[in-house]
Nucleic acid binder design. Structure first.
Lengths: 253, 253
DNA sequence: CTGGCATATCTTGTATACAAGATATCTGTG
DNA sequence: CACAGATATCTTGTATACAAGATATGCCAG
């Protein structure tokens, strides 16, 4: 039982063991599948067979099934009881909702961080912006993305509301998959860095209104990128997703 | 693993499939366990054994394990790899965070509902208030609670953001367990009904500011009830929960 | 060639056996 | 009696076999 007070994460400069073996087989299968789904390496609508996955991972169906059940809870796969399992299609109509939710959550984070952030926490946030600058210079998209997420997580930490970032991660999943379909926009990294810097600068001054506006504007950049493509791969999307709330596994309660 | 070996509810030999004819055994076990955990019938800190649960439910370990894994994702149980599984203690220090998050989510819901609610949706919301009035008169606490939740869900529906309620349900779990420990406050139902009526009235008028204020005030009632007891059963709580985000199952990521 | 029914073969759900770490107990030794 | 070590017995993690529904296939009648 480890009980550890966490104010600031060490955050290794290096992704460390990215493809390292996780503790359990189920965790490994979960990580790999989730990563491939989010990167669209496995496209929306693709069929997944527990037997095939078990063979390809060299494990039995048990850990594969465990991973799939968890992915179903995250709405990343859909399990039809005695029929089959597929990678969820992207619910296009729900993306604005996800962004709206993310906005209020992150506004709460910056607002509260304005009141409660310690100096070391502010430093940590700035550090993530610096990491992004370096990644931009190096042209390392993956490192940029990682530092981007660390930035938002650090703000939630500074607010003393770390679970805000847990919720945001959960909510942004489908949006992330959508954005993978759009072409990388040139100069985006530099713009994001500017916006991030504006947010943390306002937090540092304790200017809640300004910080919230900056964060809102930053996230509205996501909204503007929505009505972009989607006609390229219409079968990657589902127009109207029925009674949401994991209609596939168990009962939604 | 110290902790009481407290037996899991006897659960009649005849599982009363009539009242809970869930499709799969795993779903049934999940529902029953979850209900008993939230009602504190199984107290925080109680040990859970997959074998014992399997015997008491008359099924094998497989569906029991599936249910426990899902409950672990919801932070309702904690699984220590080769050691044991316990009902999660209530993270007292995280309750204000949960309430703060819920506030901004529901403020988003009422604000958006002011713009988008249809007449039938408004009627639906009023209907839930009416159900609460009836439950109050009948003194039916369970029915009141159910209508209470339906009220908040209906607002999210009216906003066109139904997943807001899904998130709120997820966030309020630990607060709900906490409130089960406090004595039922006389006159609370009537007060809640008043507050609900004020919210829907403001939504109906399209007065977003007023609706948000009403909802905020309503939810602040939760906050005021926090520093109540907690000394009665100090072993039901955990002061500082380390690296949040399901530290028990798999890796957070 | 077309339609319909039986069947073969998929799928997921469940039960059971085994593996291996963690913990408690008991035993032997000083 | 105190303490250390072996061991018995817990725990969860995984593999495998079987059950049963869903789907595809193919065969046969018209």
């Amino acid at each position: 039982m480890i009980l550890q007070r966490s104010s600031v994460k060490p955050l290794p400069a290096r992704p460390a063991l990215r493809s390292a073996p996780r503790s359990t087989a189920a965790a490994l299968v979960y990580d790999r599948l989730r990563s491939q789904i989010l990167s669209l390496a496995i496209p929306p609508g693709a069929a997944l067979s527990e037997n095939e996955l078990a063979k390809s991972f060299g494990v039995s169906r048990t850990p594969v099934r465990e991973a799939l059940l968890r992915l179903a809870d995250e709405m990343l796969v859909e399990i039809v009881p005695k029929s089959g399992t597929t990678v969820s299609r992207i619910p296009y109509s729900q993306l604005p909702e996800a962004i709206a939710i993310r906005k209020v959550l992150e506004e709460l984070a910056v607002r509260t961080a304005c009141e409660r952030a310690s100096k070391s926490q502010l430093t940590n946030i700035w550090m993530q912006v610096e990491r992004q600058r370096e990644a931009d210079h190096a042209g390392d998209i993956d490192a940029f993305h990682e530092a981007d997420e660390a930035f938002h997580a650090a703000i939630a930490d500074a607010a003393g509301y770390p679970s805000i970032w847990q919720l945001v991660k959960q909510v942004k999943l489908q949006v992330d998959r959508y954005r993978r379909l759009t072409l990388p926009e040139t100069g985006r990294m530099a713009r994001v860095i500017e916006e991030h810097a504006a947010v943390i600068a306002a937090i540092e001054k304790g200017d809640a209104a300004r910080a919230m506006t900056a964060m809102r504007g930053h996230l509205e950049g996501l909204e503007h990128s929505l009505p972009n493509i989607r006609n390229l791969n219409p079968d990657y999307f589902v127009e109207d997703v029925g009674e949401f709330a994991r209609p596939t596994t168990m009962n939604g309660k």
